[in-house]
């Protein structure tokens, strides 16, 4: 008995080759799900006809059009998902991930205007950015925005992270010291600020404090 190997949808079958079989290739591969090709010469003409119908131009064209329209639908779904993800930055992120980490994932890919938009929202006390570690996101911001966020932190009485100070302009700190020694910012927590000052500003500050202490006596 001779057997012929037939592969349909990745599965291998073996069929008996009978005399008179009209077979061109000993191995037949068909990836269509519901089809099984028969090359048995004793097959009746109706089944032969059905395979001819299946592979007819019209059916192939119809199947192709269905495939194309399903791809279009998928493309629309993907583009909607991408738009939503970039617009509502945190909507698709897991709830357990904190705001700073979520921001850090997307900041490298954002343009300057978007990053400036984040700075503006922080300055307006947007709730969404309430718990953000400003020092972590400052590397991506302009000096102007960094200075503004630093001054806001001082004004709110929040802890100044030493990491923040690297991104604040020396001019910003100098201006603060000048205002302090002129008596314009009496509520400024200068003890928190002085470790970050340059030598010139430290000297200015300490001379001012020495003078103040002399007057106290």
């Amino acid at each position: 008995m001779k057997l012929r190997k037939v592969t349909i949808n990745g599965k291998t079958y073996y069929e008996e080759i009978k005399d008179g079989d009209n077979v061109i290739d000993p191995e037949v591969v068909d990836n269509r799900k519901s089809q099984r090709i028969k090359y048995d010469s004793e097959e009746d003409s109706s089944s032969k006809k059905s395979s001819e119908t299946m592979f007819s131009k019209e059916n192939l064209k119809r199947d192709w059009n269905e495939f194309v329209s399903s791809m279009k639908g998928l493309g629309t779904k993907i583009s909607k998902k991408v738009k939503r993800t970039t617009k509502d930055w945190f909507q698709d992120s897991p709830a357990t991930e904190d705001t700073t980490n979520r921001l850090l994932k997307i900041l490298p890919y954002m343009d300057k205007d978007d990053i400036h938009g984040i700075a503006k929202r922080i300055l307006k006390n947007d709730k969404e950015f309430k718990d953000v570690d400003y020092a972590a996101i400052m590397p991506f911001m302009t000096k102007k925005d960094c200075d503004a966020i630093f001054l806001k932190t001082l004004k709110d009485g929040d802890t100044i992270s030493i990491k923040m100070v690297h991104f604040v302009s020396p001019d910003c700190l100098s201006i603060l010291v000048d205002r302090y020694v002129c008596g314009k910012c009496p509520d400024l927590d200068i003890d928190a600020l002085y470790p970050f000052l340059n030598s010139a500003d430290v000297k200015k500050l300490f001379y001012y404090e020495l003078k103040k202490n002399k007057h106290k006596r």
Binding site: D191, Y194, N213
Partner: peptide, 9 residues
């Protein structure tokens, strides 16, 4: 930790 200005003086 960092001493205050008064403590440093």
């Amino acid at each position: 930790s960092i001493p205050s200005i008064d403590s440093l003086l």
